[in-house]
């Protein structure tokens, strides 16, 4: 009896550990590009859209450009930019995509560049992974899993504002 009562929480820990492992998607290398730390935020039940984030490093000597993205979990994925101008936050689609300079890297993160998963029929739930394909002008298509993280675990866009405000 005693061992059994102990086993339950231990199983729980193990389970959580497995979840954590599956939720931290591995980095993907494709040609000169290194894509790492891809994640989306879990969606509240009614939410129609979700933000996606990833770091893209370009080890090569040629500039590249993220021009499109898609996912079987979303009707459309757009490349977005969030900007702050004083107290005003704006979000817009980048129609020409996002440049990834040679030898540099670009970070898609809350409060800045991001992917926007739209027309999502089944909300992303924490612990899942969302298969996503990024399309680059030169490197072509790269498929990588995006881990689904807790709703506001990552520094939210909102907190991005807050830091901007401190300068006022």
């Amino acid at each position: 009896m005693k061992s059994r009562t102990l086993a339950a929480p231990m199983l729980g820990v193990l389970f959580l550990g497995l979840l954590a492992a599956s939720a931290s998607a591995d980095a993907v290398t494709h040609g000169d590009l290194l894509l790492s730390d891809g994640y989306v935020r879990a969606m509240p039940p009614d939410a129609p859209v979700a933000g996606g984030y990833v770091t893209i490093a370009n080890k090569g000597s040629q500039d590249d450009r993220l021009v499109a993205a898609r996912s079987p979990r979303a009707g459309a994925v757009q490349i977005h930019e969030m900007t702050m101008n004083g107290d005003v936050m704006k979000m817009r689609e980048l129609p020409d995509g996002l440049p990834v300079p040679a030898g540099g890297s670009v970070e898609l993160k809350p409060g800045g560049y991001h992917l926007m998963f739209m027309q999502v029929p089944t909300p992303f739930a924490e612990g899942e992974t969302v298969e996503t394909t990024l399309v680059f002008e030169k490197a072509g298509e790269v498929a990588l899993p995006f881990a689904v993280r807790a709703m506001h675990a990552a520094p939210a866009a909102h907190q991005g504002h807050a830091s901007d405000h401190s300068g006022h």
Partner: peptide
């Protein structure tokens, strides 16, 4: 148009509160 609750959820995702 999307349901008002969906629009509110989207707003709250961008600006928590």
């Amino acid at each position: 148009r999307l349901a008002p609750t969906a629009q509110v959820a989207s707003a709250l995702d961008a600006v928590p509160g």
